[in-house]
Amino acid sequence: MTQAARLDLDAQTMTINDSSATLLVSNSVDLAHSNTMALSCVADSVVTLTNEAQLDDFMATYAEDVEHQLSLFVLSGGSNVLLPAALNAVVLQPKMRGIHLTAQTDDYVDIEVMAGENWHDLVVHTVNQGWYGLENLALIPGLTGAAPVQNIGAYGVQLEDCLQYVRAYHLPTQTWHHLSAADCQFDYRDSIFKRTPNTWLISRVAFRLHTDPTHILASYGDVQTVAQRYAEQQEREQANPS
């Protein structure tokens, strides 16, 4: 483990207080519980972020170290990463939570989703609310903040189809950015975030979803089969109410 990648802590863990929460910084952390393959990987330091202000505070506190010697590694849900036995870096884990309705009309809703929200749980939530567009992306593992990195997709739908913008922190310049879908440079399972790893930390993702279920893309293979079975079940229940 290289000293350069460790934060200078008086103890094994430390806290930085801001106006809204306490930022936890830990040294010598095994990331086995932070990746879906449960691989043991001891990171030099781990910074757990529960709001955006904490990232500003951390970067301000360690600005000189980050500029000259510290390697930063952004780790979301750990569902698409193969970690080494030792990671000589400061791991930044975005754990911000929250789903916010920002606009609503008869035709659509706009929502902002924080990076630490579980992706599948988000999809279930939107369907339960009658907001459509993400349903084909159900059961994809990981957190929402990682979804734009891969431009996740399934059954004829890609994330970029519903994405409005991403709020992300550019680590080299220590500045926040509002990136439109075009700015994200999406391609098939690809994006600017994937092509420049550990350069951006995504804190929130914004979507525009439809309120009309006819926008559901049900013409794709198995989705059409499931939709047909559901329609037949609904017809039977209406014909034979209990």
Score class of each variant (00 low, 15 high):
125 H>C: 12
76 S>C: 12
50 T>K: 06
105 T>A: 06
44 D>K: 02
82 L>I: 15
154 A>W: 04
132 Y>G: 09
110 D>L: 02
67 E>P: 07
46 V>W: 00
84 P>T: 09
114 M>N: 12
65 D>N: 10
106 D>S: 14
92 L>S: 03
153 G>Y: 04
43 A>W: 02
130 G>A: 07
164 Q>Y: 04
115 A>Q: 07
144 T>R: 07
59 M>V: 14
108 Y>W: 13
56 D>H: 07
124 V>I: 15
47 V>F: 03
147 A>T: 14
54 Q>H: 01
115 A>K: 01
89 A>P: 11
114 M>L: 14
109 V>T: 08
139 L>S: 14
43 A>K: 02
124 V>Y: 11
77 G>A: 06
83 L>M: 14
157 V>F: 07
117 E>N: 08
121 D>G: 12
154 A>S: 09
109 V>G: 02
48 T>D: 08
95 K>M: 13
78 G>A: 04
95 K>D: 10
66 V>C: 11
146 A>T: 07
156 G>Q: 06
40 S>A: 15
124 V>W: 11
164 Q>L: 15
60 A>L: 06
75 L>Q: 00
44 D>Y: 04
127 V>Y: 10
152 I>P: 01
60 A>S: 12
55 L>P: 03
94 P>S: 02
143 L>R: 05
61 T>Y: 08
152 I>C: 01
144 T>M: 06
74 V>E: 01
146 A>F: 05
78 G>M: 05
135 E>P: 08
120 H>C: 11
81 V>N: 07
118 N>M: 09
161 D>C: 05
79 S>R: 09
101 L>N: 01
131 W>L: 00
115 A>F: 02
154 A>E: 00
94 P>I: 00
115 A>W: 01
145 G>K: 03
96 M>N: 08
115 A>Y: 02
48 T>G: 01
113 V>N: 05
159 L>D: 01
150 Q>K: 11
85 A>E: 14
104 Q>E: 15
66 V>K: 05
133 G>Q: 05
155 Y>K: 08
55 L>Y: 03
125 H>Y: 15
133 G>Y: 03
106 D>H: 12
147 A>D: 06
84 P>A: 04
61 T>G: 06
60 A>W: 08
69 Q>P: 05
63 A>R: 07
147 A>R: 07
104 Q>T: 12
74 V>I: 05
70 L>M: 01
122 L>F: 11
94 P>M: 02
87 L>R: 10
123 V>P: 05
60 A>V: 04
48 T>H: 04
45 S>F: 04
158 Q>H: 12
117 E>L: 10
119 W>F: 15
151 N>R: 04
90 V>F: 02
144 T>H: 03
151 N>A: 06
143 L>Y: 03
155 Y>R: 08
50 T>V: 15
143 L>V: 06
39 L>W: 10
146 A>V: 05
78 G>Q: 03
101 L>I: 01
104 Q>N: 14
154 A>T: 04
100 H>W: 14
76 S>V: 08
39 L>A: 14
113 V>I: 06
71 S>Q: 13
97 R>A: 12
155 Y>G: 07
51 N>C: 11
101 L>R: 06
134 L>D: 03
86 A>P: 09
93 Q>E: 05
62 Y>K: 01
80 N>F: 10
108 Y>R: 10
99 I>E: 09
86 A>N: 11
